[in-house]
């Protein structure tokens, strides 16, 4: 039981249950399974994105360009659909994955081959990809009436009681879980974050692994691009502006250490759900949506404070002793 409580995911899950409980006292219908399914569906895109960001953060890197990647890929897919409505949706999804992969690979290449810190690379590509969206679209929007009904309805179709969007999220979560816990690359990603030098001696190609995680986050960004555009049925340059920080916030709340090496698939998913629940609950309990930003900010700070207690470095403890002596 004690070892069970050690997992921060359990605490986060408890926090979420308490949160849902609190909301239910104000709005009894919130804990209704149908409503919770709705919340899960609403949060699907954020969960997927948080997982893509998680693998990057685990390797002590960061991908600030995910939201811009989403915006660019979403625009490309929407324009393709508007121009050629006959292209089947699965093909469009593959295209979205590929476009995202290319954008992610550019980040990864710069980090891997030129050794530029990832925060600098993705700060640059954040503006470049969003600017490229403008260049591709000429500043025009793609509206709902230009998109084919298939494009819009694909993710809304119900399958075994859940919308396809939720199933996509579940599949992505399952894939990440398998990769992170059952494959060599998953172990390598964790190892690099814990100790990059030791990883080199253990025979892990650190640079190549970082390249791969950026490819993964890029593909996720691309997939989320299609899902986002078909969900909110508008493609513009402003799509998901500033969303990169929400994605990182979900990871941080989920207990993924920004210093790398610590974090799990469950944490990322729960962190995203936490934010999703807050944004879904505020309107129904009559709190102005303008409160959302301050609440998620406080949640982030609280989460870091709580998580940091378990992460204190050995070096600091020695130092404290030396100070006391």
């Amino acid at each position: 039981m004690k070892s069970f409580l050690k997992y921060r995911e359990i605490w986060l899950l408890a926090g979420i249950v308490v949160l849902i409980g609190l909301i239910s006292t104000r709005f009894p219908g919130f804990a209704d399974p149908a409503n919770l399914r709705q919340v899960f569906n609403d949060t699907s895109i954020l969960m997927i994105l948080a997982l893509g960001q998680m693998v990057v953060i685990l390797t002590r890197s960061i991908d600030l360009s995910m939201a811009s990647n989403l915006c660019f890929t979403g625009m490309v897919v929407a324009m393709l659909n508007a121009a050629h409505p006959a292209i089947p949706i699965p093909v469009l999804i593959v295209i979205a994955l590929l476009v995202g992969l290319v954008l992610g690979a550019i980040n990864g290449f710069l980090v891997w081959r030129l050794n530029i810190p990832s925060i600098v690379v993705t700060l640059g590509t954040l503006t470049i990809y969003r600017g490229a969206t403008f260049v591709v679209s000429g500043g025009a929007w793609v509206n709902a009436d230009q998109m084919s009904p298939d494009f819009i309805n694909f993710q809304r179709a119900a399958f075994l009681g859940l919308p396809v969007l939720s199933w996509i999220a579940i599949i992505v979560i399952a894939l990440f879980f398998l990769v992170m816990t059952r494959t060599q690359i998953g172990r390598s990603i964790h190892a690099i974050g814990v100790n990059p030098t030791a990883s080199v001696y253990a025979g892990i190609d650190v640079g190549r692994t970082k390249f791969i995680v950026f490819c993964i986050s890029g593909m996720i960004g691309g997939l989320a691009g299609y899902l986002w555009i078909s969900r909110y049925v508008i493609a513009s340059v402003e799509v998901a502006n500033g969303y990169e920080l929400n994605i990182i916030a979900a990871c941080v709340i989920g207990g993924i250490s920004i210093a790398g090496g610590i974090g799990s698939v469950g944490g990322a998913v729960l962190g995203a759900l936490f934010l999703g629940i807050i944004s879904n609950a505020l309107p129904v309990i009559n709190i102005s949506p303008f409160w959302q930003m301050a609440i998620s900010g406080s949640a982030i700070i609280l989460a870091v404070v709580l998580n940091a207690r378990g992460e204190r470095r050995q070096g600091r403890i020695i130092l404290r002793k030396a100070e006391a002596a």
Binding site: I62, L245, I248, A249, V252, I258, A259, F290, W291, Q292, M293, A294, I295, S296, G297, S298, A299, I300, I301, V304, V305, A308, R312, R316
Partner: peptide, 17 residues
Amino acid sequence: GLPSIVVTIGTMSLFRG
């Protein structure tokens, strides 16, 4: 003793919030 990048992502939302 918190990492500044995360703290300031939090306070960024908090202050603007």
